[in-house]
């Protein structure tokens, strides 16, 4: 679920921000509706730092309701007709304005990226899924956004449009810090490119949360590819949420040790342990850092195991 926008414990110390002083109505702002990405970029350039883009609003507007965020201008991009997900060569291309519910209803997505569909089914609740967009989730950069884990596990790309035209950002270069991405102030996300599902490629998504629909304590997305004619792993990647101030890739060193291996469960557990050891999750109101780390190990092992099996491989019981 991508609605966690609450401050981290770091931000809480020594004083919490004070939504408790009872601010319910948003501060006033100007509203601009645009019909194309060109217009959106123009508006962003014009209004500068005062402006924020409004897509699904499921993360932004709660923050505005609590006056944690006060844009002077909202640029509403919901009117941009960006089309449907489609296949292009070996990739699945999704318009940034694709809503979560569209992801779940799309046969193109369920065929092209079942991992994405699985992760999105864990997002929030039906209302969040009706309005929230993929681009909006990425731009928010939340540490517990399921989409973040998926993008990183798949080695995906984010297409961005700005005053200097289009550029492509690799997912692993996109998440920079707490609610901070490499999106420039005048840029807007226009699309996502995910590698297509294909034979010998397996996936898995595991998430642990305290309650249905609440934000993930820890989530793991796994993407595994097997050698074409053997059972060895040719590549493996993990995307993790809930372990840092942003979505992160599971320790490259640990996971890449699986390459060339026909793994046993013990091996997967050792890798999962190393992936967990490489994380440094902090305590917050939902769980302690120590617990999160233990969950990374458990979920990473489960995700790797399931991904290998889905790819058509075996996991030895030794």
């Amino acid at each position: 679920m991508t609605v966690t926008f609450g401050p981290t414990v770091d931000e809480l110390a020594p004083r919490p921000p004070a939504p408790e002083n009872g601010r319910r109505r948003d501060a006033a702002f100007e509203y601009v509706r645009v019909g194309s990405y060109d217009e959106a970029v123009e508006a962003l350039e014009h209004y500068g730092a005062r402006a924020k883009v409004l897509a699904g609003g499921q993360s932004l507007v709660p923050m505005m309701n609590l006056r944690l965020v006060r844009p002077g201008v909202l640029i509403d991009i919901n009117g941009i007709d960006a089309g449907q997900p489609y296949f292009e060569l070996d990739r699945l291309v999704l318009p940034a304005m694709t809503r979560y519910c569209e992801v779940l209803a799309s046969p193109t997505v369920s065929a092209g990226s079942p991992l994405l569909a699985a992760a999105v089914s864990r997002v929030g609740n039906v209302r969040v899924r009706n309005r929230g967009t993929l681009g909006g989730s990425l731009a928010q950069g939340e540490a517990t956004a399921e989409l973040g884990a998926v993008m990183l596990a798949l080695g995906s790309e984010i297409i961005v449009y700005g005053p200097r035209g289009y550029r492509t950002i690799a997912a692993e270069d996109f998440f920079l810090g707490y609610l901070t991405t490499s999106l420039q102030p005048e840029e807007v996300i226009t699309g996502l490119c995910l590698p297509l599902a294909r034979p010998r490629r397996g996936w898995s998504f595991h998430e642990m949360s305290r309650r249905s629909g609440s934000s993930a304590i820890v989530g793991v997305a796994a993407n595994v590819e097997l050698a074409p004619d053997g059972g060895e792993i040719s590549s493996a990647r993990l995307g993790l949420i809930g372990v840092a101030d942003r979505p992160v890739v599971g320790s490259f060193e640990a996971v890449s040790s699986l390459e060339g291996e026909v793994p046993t469960l013990a091996q997967l557990d050792a890798v999962a342990f190393a992936v967990a050891a490489a994380t440094c999750p902090v305590d917050d109101v939902q769980a302690s850092g120590s617990y999160r780390r233990r969950m990374v190990r458990v979920l990473a092992r489960r995700a790797l195991n399931e991904a290998v099996l889905r790819a058509g491989g075996r996991v030895g019981t030794a």
Binding site: V3, Y31, V61, P62, L66, C101, V126
Partner: peptide
């Protein structure tokens, strides 16, 4: 709640449930 969490403010927008606390009338 004003956070889109509780569902009290739900309305149907073109038939689909949305949180009316998370949308602006101008939209």
């Amino acid at each position: 709640c004003g956070e889109g969490v509780c569902g009290t403010c739900t309305v149907l927008l073109d038939g689909d449930p949305v949180s009316s606390c998370l949308m602006y009338a101008v939209q």
